[in-house]
């Protein structure tokens, strides 16, 4: 495991029973589909929002195996405008 060489690792999950059975050191769960963990194809704002919140979890989880659930509801959500998009 990467965590044991001193590099913090956040693991995303869309299957709660799997995270409960085999948690990573730091876990972020959201109710998206297998195969579309970051969001829909081409949905830059949605994918960025998930990525941003997943990375931020490194500062929010303080016990091994801890989990944060993201509130996102797939399409029924207003995601922040995309940042850093190359023209």
């Amino acid at each position: 495991m990467v965590e044991s060489v001193g590099i913090p690792t956040v693991t995303l999950s869309v299957v709660r029973s799997m995270t409960d059975a085999t948690p990573g050191p730091r876990n972020v769960f959201l109710r998206f589909r297998l195969g579309q963990v970051l969001g829909e194809p081409g949905e830059v704002a949605q994918q960025q929002a998930v990525l941003r919140r997943a990375l931020a979890a490194v500062d929010e989880i303080d016990a091994p195996g801890g989990m944060i659930e993201l509130p996102y509801r797939w399409k029924r959500e207003r995601y922040p405008a995309p940042v850093g998009v190359a023209e």
Binding site: V5, G6, I7, T9, V10, L12
Partner: peptide
């Protein structure tokens, strides 16, 4: 883990 350490990685995100 070794290759991330070599690259000076500070944080890893694992995606299923």
């Amino acid at each position: 883990a070794a290759l991330f350490r070599e690259d000076g990685v500070d944080l890893v995100l694992a995606v299923p």
